[in-house]
């Protein structure tokens, strides 16, 4: 139903996309964090990676206003509702992405984004309609990207 996820594989890719958007009056409408760890009968099990999804609303963007940010293998993150009109900053390295959207900061291995339908800007709750794991514990589309391979490519081989 929605666009696929675009990975931010370089500092250049970050700088060319996020700071150029209209962040005036932007806010966090939803966020959803899923840890790839759970309690199994014989202990704690791990599978895939943890993921953080944030639905940013950008009221001053004309065509699309609902931007989903996806962070893979999240170490920690801080969250607030309002972004205080801050322009995003970030440091993108191989398997290390530290980004800041004003009071919203994320430390993870990789980030990506996609525009979602503007219906998500209303009362509709997006992340209760879009799951992350299937019933076998596998990551579902569009989140099942091989981001480690993409991040490990040499910078010059990565299409901006």
């Amino acid at each position: 139903m929605e666009a696929s996820i675009t990975l931010i594989t370089s500092q250049k890719a970050f700088n060319q996309f996020f700071p150029g958007l209209m962040w005036d009056c932007a806010y966090v409408k939803e966020s959803h964090f899923v840890q790839a760890q759970w309690q199994a009968p014989n202990g704690v099990a791990f599978k895939e990676q943890s993921i953080l999804r944030i639905l940013f609303m950008l009221p001053c963007e004309l065509a699309n206003q609902a931007l989903e940010l996806v962070a893979y293998d999240v170490s920690n993150y801080s969250m607030a509702e309002w972004l205080d009109d801050c322009v995003p900053t970030g440091s993108i390295k191989s398997r290390q992405a530290e980004v800041s959207f004003g009071p919203v900061t994320i430390k993870s291995a990789c980030i990506g984004y996609r525009w979602v339908d503007n219906i998500s800007s209303g009362r509709h709750q997006f992340f209760t309609q879009e799951g992350y794991f299937d019933e076998q514990g596998r990551i579902v589309e569009p989140y099942n990207i091989d981001w480690p391979s993409e991040m490990d490519k040499p910078i010059e081989a990565v299409a901006d």
């Binding site: 806010y27 939803e30 966020s31 959803h32 609303m57 800007s121 992340f127």
Partner: peptide, 27 residues
Amino acid sequence: HDAFIKESIFVAGIWFRAGGVASGDGD
């Protein structure tokens, strides 16, 4: 002991609509 966060979800009690931002029951 050995506790961990398995999942979290945040939902803002505001949403965008024509003419401005509307608010519901809070975050």
